[in-house]
């Protein structure tokens, strides 16, 4: 069976061994142990040391850069056949699904708290005895602006709740929604541009998308500053602050990633990468962007408006 010891890449491209994965795994460990040490130092009152996590982060970034560069290079050399590209598509698709489930955990927490825990603590529903007996002073409202125990968790003065559709004109999250929805359209135009092999348009629309992503992030930061400094809405202001900041925070983190990824695609487009039939990098970035957008719509509805 001598023939089977050779790889025939025409049916499927099987890469040779490489150093990237094991170094990436090592870098990840460096990163998270550094982070864990830092967090523990902070908790115990000493000033934490970032160094190791920064080194880990740089290490991870470097490996990822080399790895992706290698994949791009292999693709340019025509080694990736159609079957492998299909695997990439499956891979990206299910990766996005796993991200959906990550957000589902936080949305689930939000729904559970709103429909069960807060009413119970406020003396309503099947287990209202909890509130009656243990938290007599607590009223069930959503957003929770007065916590069951306000000594342990500061009360937010105000919430981010929607001021009603009539007043959306002065409501930042509404603008954010418009911006993100628009960016989904612009990235779609960029896709059309690829299909039409119009590089100028592609670069243009990608740039617009990146720009919109950055604007969104700036507004989001602005909103956080507002929350912390004016509303008294913080991470430790009880369950409303917890769900609000983790949901929007992880979304914001994903927007940051997405913007960066699209930015990379922009650079690649300027370098002349991508053709109408071969633009997986771009397409996966755009799916990711659409996903981030859909999550935002969920956030806007369930965190802000309802």
């Amino acid at each position: 069976m001598s023939s089977s010891s050779e790889v025939d890449n025409s049916t499927y491209y099987v890469p040779e061994q490489g150093w990237y994965p094991v170094f990436l795994a090592f870098g990840l460990m460096l990163l998270v142990t550094g982070l864990a040490g830092f967090l523990n130092d902070m908790k115990n009152g000493s000033s934490g040391d970032w160094t190791q996590s920064i080194i880990g982060f740089l290490f991870v970034s470097f490996v990822l850069y080399s790895w992706f560069a290698k994949v791009v290079e292999e693709n340019a050399a025509g080694m990736n056949n159609a079957a492998l590209k299909k695997s990439y598509v499956w891979g990206m698709g299910w990766f996005i699904f796993s991200e959906v489930m990550f957000f589902a955990a936080f949305f689930g927490a939000l729904f559970y708290v709103r429909s069960f825990v807060v009413p119970w603590l406020g003396g309503e529903g099947d287990k209202g005895i909890i509130g009656d007996y243990l938290w007599p002073a607590f009223e069930s409202t959503w957003p929770v602006v007065a916590n069951p125990n306000a000594d342990l968790f500061v009360n937010p003065g105000e919430s981010m709740a929607s001021p009603g559709m009539m007043n959306w004109g002065a409501y930042l999250p509404f603008y954010n929604t418009v911006i993100l929805l628009t960016s989904s359209v612009t990235i779609h135009f960029a896709h059309d541009a690829i299909k039409a092999e119009n590089r100028k348009k592609l670069i243009g629309w990608l740039a617009v998308t990146v720009f919109l992503g950055i604007i969104f992030l700036i507004l989001q930061v602005e909103e956080y500053i507002h929350a912390y400094s004016e509303l008294g809405l913080t991470l430790d202001s009880g369950i409303y602050g917890s769900t609000f900041f983790l949901l929007t925070g992880f979304h914001g983190f994903h927007v940051t990633m997405g913007t960066f990824i699209i930015f990379v695609q922009l650079i690649r487009a300027m370098k002349g990468h991508f053709t109408a039939n071969d633009c997986f990098g771009f397409e996966s970035a755009s799916w990711y962007w659409h996903f981030v957008d859909v999550v935002w719509v969920g956030l806007f509805i369930f965190v802000y408006v309802l």
């Binding site: 968790f153 991470l235 009880g238 369950i239």
Partner: peptide
């Protein structure tokens, strides 16, 4: 643990 959120603490409205 580290940022004093209250997902699992009834005193802050969690459970």
């Amino acid at each position: 643990i580290h940022f004093n959120t209250s997902f699992f603490n009834a005193a802050g409205g969690g459970d």
